[in-house]
Simulated assay, not measured.
Amino acid sequence: MSVESESFAYGSSMHGGRPTFALTRRLGVDAGLTLYELVPEDLADGRQKRFRKANSNHRLTRVAVTDAVPYVQEDPNGVFDFSEVGTPSGRTPSDWQWQDWCALKIATLSNSRQQAVQRLVRDVLDDSGINVDFVTRGEGSAILSEGAGIRLTTAFLAMKRLQKYEKLTTVADSITRMSIEECYYWHAKCRSPTNPNGVKALRTLLTAHL
């Protein structure tokens, strides 16, 4: 996987460079790796309306940012302290307001799916300059650039219903090798309210030979 360009080094320019994805590892009853997208509340509302308009069965699971990234501390002004969270190298996201933001759950991978995606997660975090220990040892969270989050979203959606380990590792390895442009293309296909078969098409493309 090639290192992403500086334009993707942190967050989306649409949101002033904020981080736009988070990855959290939990143990116990909710064990697994959960990927979230961080978005303004009004953007989440707009997406849900588009799903309803398209008669999609998909529903957005919305949680507070502090629930998605439970290791941040919030001060009275709504500024978060991310010092206990893995962040891309060279910048700590300590200067943004988050009162009108939420986290949208993308998927949780556990058991064999979590094992199969580990190498991709390590590659993504290494390329972003994030210490992988935040999401590979015990419980912890990391926040991700838009490009890194798009790549993991594509993988998590494609893998979440697969059973065979060979198919799981094939999907993860294939997405590792994708260009960032390909990841954006498949991300749009997989999450479009008007294209309910996007994830199925991606799975077929990557695993039909198995």
Rank of each mutant, 00 (worst) to 15 (best):
R91T: 09
E74Q: 15
K167C: 01
Q163K: 15
A31Q: 08
I130Q: 00
H187N: 08
G17R: 04
G138P: 07
P196G: 07
L60H: 05
I175L: 01
V72A: 11
I106T: 10
N111L: 10
H209C: 08
E181V: 09
E146D: 12
V135D: 02
T24I: 04
G129S: 03
Q115L: 14
R113G: 12
Y165D: 01
T108L: 07
N57D: 15
P40N: 09
L125T: 00
G129C: 00
E6D: 12
D42V: 11
G16L: 04
V39W: 04
T20E: 07
S5D: 14
V117I: 15
L125Y: 00
S12V: 10
Q115W: 12
K189I: 02
W98C: 11
T204V: 01
I150W: 01
V79F: 15
L157C: 09
E74L: 14
G11W: 01
E41A: 13
E41D: 13
G149E: 02
L38H: 02
S141N: 05
Q99A: 13
P88A: 03
F80V: 10
V63L: 11
N77V: 12
A22Y: 00
L157Y: 08
Y36W: 14
T87P: 01
N55V: 08
E84P: 03
M14K: 15
T154A: 14
A31W: 02
R203S: 08
L168Q: 13
C190Q: 15
I150G: 03
R26H: 11
E41W: 11
D126Q: 09
F51Y: 13
A31D: 09
R25D: 02
E4D: 14
Y36K: 04
F82K: 10
K160I: 11
E166D: 08
V121Y: 00
S5F: 08
R59M: 12
T170F: 03
A142W: 02
G86E: 10
E37M: 15
P93R: 07
F8N: 12
Q48P: 07
F21W: 03
T34N: 06
V63F: 02
P93H: 09
T34P: 05
G86K: 05
G28D: 07
R52Q: 14
